[in-house]
């Protein structure tokens, strides 16, 4: 049944994307009046083929094909150390292409119509307008499991101080992170344009002397998140094994990437039987921890740790211990335990 135009008619004259008609992107046959014939060969998501957008946005499309949002290779990088060579091959064939890759975003998923997540889409972002950005709809929809609600305070706890000050995702994350810069990075940690707290908050510029001293004393030893993460964040206790659960918590421990640094850790959703349905045992499961350093998006200027040295050095609140560690986790988890020393008077 005809339900009217999906495109806001007022947009048609304003936006150059519509100048050559729907067929420019969606193909089909605009010379036919009947639905069946008109829709023959029609593309529902034209930007699934980046060449569609690349006709006009050549450089962006060329870079984007190598970007992490498109390749989703970061998911493979994160888990591959647990596999033997044979297991990695199975993973690539049975899991990565069929499961992980389904999360990749094409141009239209951010600029026109929200990507389907779990089969649900937010639909057109703004009546088929080609939007530059709309973080609350696009970023929030795919990253709404943990990052976005953590940032806005919807998950519990105070909103991130940057949100309180009116900032959204792209005030810190620049477009090069999304569009890519032409290099096929294997992990977000390799991206040179990643935001860094120090870009805006360099050491030595603090208003108070005691803050300067605290920052100097902890520099290189504790990440910014280690002290400034404001409240519990979402941790994935288990997943893919037939059940999934997430619970809030703040976990402090050594960064798996740099054991000298204390930081916020997040429990990732890979457990021993995660890939059992695909016949993957994970021969090296114990070599990689279940906790990874996480840039918690719930930053506060003042926390119980910035207020009181005792919060860490005496009370040792939120620190990962053998007792609080997940059961049947990787042996590598034990390397992340950090016991803060008492302060000498």
């Amino acid at each position: 049944m005809y339900k009217g135009y999906v495109v806001d008619k007022a947009l048609l004259d304003k936006d150059p994307h519509f100048k050559a008609g729907c067929v420019l992107c969606h193909a089909g046959n605009d010379g036919e009046l009947g639905k069946e014939k008109a829709h023959l060969g029609m593309l529902k998501k034209p930007s699934d083929n980046l060449r569609s957008c690349g006709v006009c946005h050549k450089k962006v499309a060329a870079n984007y094909v190598k970007s992490l949002h498109y390749t989703t290779i970061g998911q493979r990088t994160g888990v591959m150390s647990r596999f033997s060579a044979a297991e990695l091959k199975t993973f690539d064939e049975k899991v990565f292409e069929k499961s992980c890759r389904s999360c990749h975003a094409s141009c239209g998923d951010c600029h026109v119509k929200g990507a389907p997540v779990g089969g649900i889409s937010i639909g057109l972002v703004a009546k088929h307008k080609f939007v530059k950005k709309d973080e609350g709809k696009t970023c929030a929809f795919c990253h709404g499991g943990r990052v976005y609600p953590e940032y806005t305070g919807d998950y519990g706890g105070a909103p991130d101080v940057h949100y309180q000050k009116g900032m959204l995702c792209m005030d810190c994350h620049k477009k090069e992170e999304f569009h890519g810069d032409g290099t096929a990075y294997k992990s977000k940690n390799e991206i040179p344009q990643r935001p860094a707290c120090k870009s805006c908050h360099p050491n030595g510029k603090e208003a108070k002397m005691e803050t300067q001293v605290a920052h100097r004393q902890h520099e290189g030893k504790v990440s910014c998140y280690g002290c400034h993460s404001g409240s519990a964040y979402r941790n994935c206790n288990d997943c893919h094994g037939g059940h999934a659960a997430a619970s809030p918590g703040m976990i402090l421990g050594r960064s798996p990437r740099d054991k000298k640094v204390l930081t916020t850790l997040r429990l990732i959703p890979t457990v021993r039987d995660t890939f059992a349905p695909a016949g993957i045992k994970m021969e090296h499961f114990d070599a990689v921890p279940n906790y990874w350093d996480t840039p918690a998006h719930n930053i506060k200027k003042r926390t119980d740790r910035t207020r009181k040295c005792d919060a860490c050095h005496v009370d040792r609140k939120n620190f990962l211990t053998k007792e609080t560690m997940i059961k049947n986790g990787a042996k590598a988890n034990e390397d992340l335990i950090f016991v803060p020393k008492a302060i000498k008077n």
Binding site: T152, G153, G157, A158, P159, Y163, Q164, G166, S231
Partner: peptide, 12 residues
Amino acid sequence: LNAFYGAWAYMK
């Protein structure tokens, strides 16, 4: 000026 409600009352 924008000062989101969550800055004035939050879960603790």
